[in-house]
C-alpha cells in the first residue's frame, strides 16, 4: 500500500485511475440503489453483457468502442424496457436471450477484427490504469447527466418502483419514467466498463448499495452511503492490486464483496443484540 501511495503522488496514470474510480463510484452510488429498490439486477446484467455487441461492431468498423458501448447500452435498455412494459410474461426469457445474443454478436465481430486481443480483455475485465483524460471527461459528463436526472426524478423512480398501479392513478407516466431509469442504468454500465469491465460491472453497481441498504433509513442515506462505500472500495482495490501487480478490476470487485460480507455480518450481530434486548 505504501508503494501505491508513493506512486500516487508522482504518477499521472495512477492519479487518473483514482479519479476514474471516484467518478465511477458516483455513478454506482446514484444508480445502485434504484437497481436494488426496483429489483432489476437481472435486467441491468442483461444490458451490461449485451453491450459487447455494440463494442464488437465498433471494433470491426474502426470506431470508438465506448461510443459503440453507449449506443448498444441505450438500445438494449429500451428493448428490455419495452419487453417489461408490454410483454412481461416473456421478460425473464427475453432478457436472458438479449444478454447472450449481444455477447455472441460482439464476439463474432471481434473475431473478424484483426489485432483485437489486449483491447478486448480491457473492456471485458476493465483496466482502470489505461484511463485517459478523455475517458475522465466522458465519465464526468455521464455522472453529471445521471446526477441531474436522478435529482429531478427520484420521487418518480420511487413511486413506480413501489407500486405501478398507484403511480398510474397519480398520472405519472410510468412507461416513460421506467425507460428513463433503464437508460440511466445503461449509461452507468458504460461508465464502469473502463474500471471493472462489462463482465464485472453488476457487482460494483449492486454490492455497495446492498451493503448500505442493511443500515440506511432513507434513499438519500442509501445513495450517499453507497457512493462513499464504492469510492472506498475502488480506491482500496486499486491500492491493493498495485504492488503485487494484480488486475485492478477483479481486486475492486473482491473488496466490494468483502465489504458486503462485513456489512451482512454486522447486521446479523446487530439484530441478535436487539432481539434479546427487546425480550
Amino acid at each position: 500500500m505504501t508503494a501505491f501511495l508513493d506512486a500516487l503522488l508522482n504518477q499521472a496514470f495512477l492519479q487518473r485511475a483514482v479519479a476514474a474510480g471516484l467518478l465511477a463510484s458516483l455513478g454506482c452510488g446514484l444508480i445502485g440503489p434504484w437497481v436494488l429498490i426496483r429489483r432489476m439486477s437481472h435486467l441491468a446484467g442483461g444490458i451490461a453483457h449485451a453491450v459487447l455487441g455494440g463494442m464488437g461492431i465498433a471494433f470491426f468498423l474502426g470506431g470508438s468502442p465506448l461510443l459503440g458501448a453507449t449506443l448498444a447500452a441505450v438500445v438494449v435498455a429500451l428493448l428490455i424496457g419495452f419487453i417489461h412494459l408490454y410483454w412481461e410474461a416473456q421478460e425473464d426469457l427475453l432478457t436472458g436471450a438479449l444478454w447472450s445474443v449481444g455477447m455472441a454478436v460482439g464476439l463474432l465481430f471481434i473475431y473478424r477484427t484483426p489485432g483485437y486481443g489486449t483491447d478486448l480483455m480491457s473492456y471485458l475485465f476493465g483496466n482502470i490504469l489505461l484511463v485517459g483524460r478523455q475517458d475522465l471527461l466522458f465519465m464526468l459528463l455521464i455522472d453529471g447527466l445521471v446526477l441531474a436526472v436522478v435529482g429531478l426524478l427520484h420521487r418518480h423512480f420511487l413511486a413506480i418502483s413501489l407500486d405501478e398501479a398507484f403511480a398510474r392513478s397519480r398520472g405519472i407516466p410510468v412507461a416513460a419514467v421506467y425507460l428513463i431509469l433503464l437508460g440511466l442504468v445503461a449509461l452507468t454500465v458504460v461508465l464502469l466498463i473502463r474500471v471493472v469491465g462489462l463482465i464485472l460491472v453488476m457487482a460494483l453497481v449492486t454490492l455497495p448499495a446492498a451493503a448500505c441498504s442493511l443500515f440506511a433509513r432513507s434513499i438519500a442515506a442509501l445513495t450517499l452511503g453507497a457512493t462513499a462505500l464504492a469510492m472506498a472500495c475502488t480506491t482500496l482495490g486499486l491500492g491493493l492490486s498495485y504492488a503485487p501487480d494484480w488486475p485492478a478490476g477483479p481486486t475492486i470487485i473482491l473488496v466490494c464483496a468483502a465489504a458486503y460480507a462485513l456489512a451482512l455480518g454486522v447486521n446479523v450481530l446487530q439484530r441478535r443484540v436487539r432481539v434479546p434486548a427487546a425480550r
Partner: peptide, 22 residues
Amino acid sequence: VRHLPITVSTLVGLGRLHGWRP
C-alpha cells in the same frame, strides 16, 4: 417493502406526486 429504506412519511409524500411535476 422489506428491502426498502423508506419511511412512512416518505411513502405518504408520494401521494402528492402528480404527472411529471419533478
